[in-house]
C-alpha cells in the first residue's frame, strides 16, 4: 500500500512538472505574441519609431548654416497607472536622434545628465589628479533644444465585460533660448480587452 502511494506521488509530480509552461526567449524583432493590456516593449518601439520619424521628417532638426543641434532631455512625465521608467521611451528617441547625424545629446544637464560630468569638475583642487586632465572652466556646451513630454493613460468602459485602455505618448521639441516650440506630436496606442485584464 505504502509502495503504491509512493508510486502515485512520483507519477503525479512528474505530470505536474510536465504541465509547467516552458520558458522561451522572445523574438524581439518579429514577435508574434499576443498583445497585452499594459504597455510592452512593442508599444514603446512603435511609439518611438513614429515619433522619431515625425521629428526627422518635420525638418525641425535641420540647423541653419549646417552643424548639429545640442539637445537635452527634459522632463518626461509618466501619468499612467503603470510603473514606467520613461527612459524606456527616451533612450530610443535619443538613439534615433544621435543616429540621424543632426543632433548631439548633452549629458551635462536635464533628465539625461551624467553626475560624473559635474563630479569631475570638482577635482580641480584635488592634489591626486593631474590638473591638465581635469576639465577646464567654461567648457560645457549649453543645450539649444530640449525634448520633454508626457505618457498618460485613459481607461474607458467598453460594454459590460470589456474595457478600452488608451495610452498617449506626447513629445515636444523646444528652443531653449527663445522658448519657441519647433515640433510636437502624439502617438496613441489603444487596446480593448476583458475587464478582468489589469492595465497597470
Amino acid at each position: 500500500m505504502k509502495r503504491t502511494m509512493l508510486h502515485l506521488i512520483m507519477v503525479s509530480s512528474f505530470l505536474a512538472a510536465g504541465c509547467v509552461p516552458e520558458t522561451e526567449n522572445i523574438d524581439i524583432v518579429h514577435d508574434e505574441g499576443k498583445p497585452v493590456m499594459g504597455l510592452d516593449y512593442r508599444d514603446f518601439d512603435r511609439a518611438a519609431s513614429e515619433l522619431i520619424q515625425s521629428m526627422l521628417g518635420s525638418g525641425a532638426l535641420k540647423k541653419q548654416g549646417g552643424g548639429r543641434y545640442v539637445v537635452a532631455t527634459g522632463r518626461i512625465v509618466n501619468d499612467t497607472m503603470q510603473r514606467i521608467d520613461t527612459d524606456q521611451l527616451m533612450a530610443k528617441i535619443e538613439t534615433g536622434l544621435l543616429n540621424s547625424g543632426q543632433a548631439v545629446m548633452t549629458s551635462a544637464v536635464g533628465a539625461g545628465a551624467d553626475k560624473l560630468v559635474h563630479e569631475s569638475r570638482e577635482l580641480r583642487d584635488a592634489e591626486e589628479f593631474d590638473p591638465n586632465t581635469v576639465p577646464e572652466r567654461r567648457t560645457l556646451i549649453a543645450p539649444e533644444l530640449s525634448i520633454s513630454g508626457k505618457i498618460f493613460q485613459k481607461n474607458v468602459r467598453y460594454g459590460r465585460n470589456r474595457q478600452q485602455v488608451e495610452y498617449y505618448f506626447q513629445l515636444k521639441l523646444s528652443d531653449v533660448k527663445s522658448g519657441l516650440r519647433y515640433w510636437q506630436d502624439e502617438v496613441i496606442v489603444g487596446k480593448r480587452g476583458s475587464n478582468r485584464s489589469v492595465a497597470w
Binding site: 512593442r42 518601439d45 512603435r46 522619431i52 520619424q53 515625425s54 526627422l56 521628417g57 530610443k92 534615433g96
Partner: peptide, 29 residues
C-alpha cells in the same frame, strides 16, 4: 542601416479604398 525606427508598425486600409504610408529614413545615409 541599423535603426530604432525599423520596427513592425501597424497600418490599415478600409475596404475598396486607397491608402498611403509615409516612412522617413533614420539617417541621410
Amino acid at each position: 542601416i541599423e535603426s530604432k525606427t525599423s520596427v513592425w508598425l501597424p497600418a490599415s486600409a478600409m475596404g475598396k479604398s486607397p491608402f498611403s504610408l509615409k516612412v522617413v529614413a533614420p539617417t541621410p545615409k
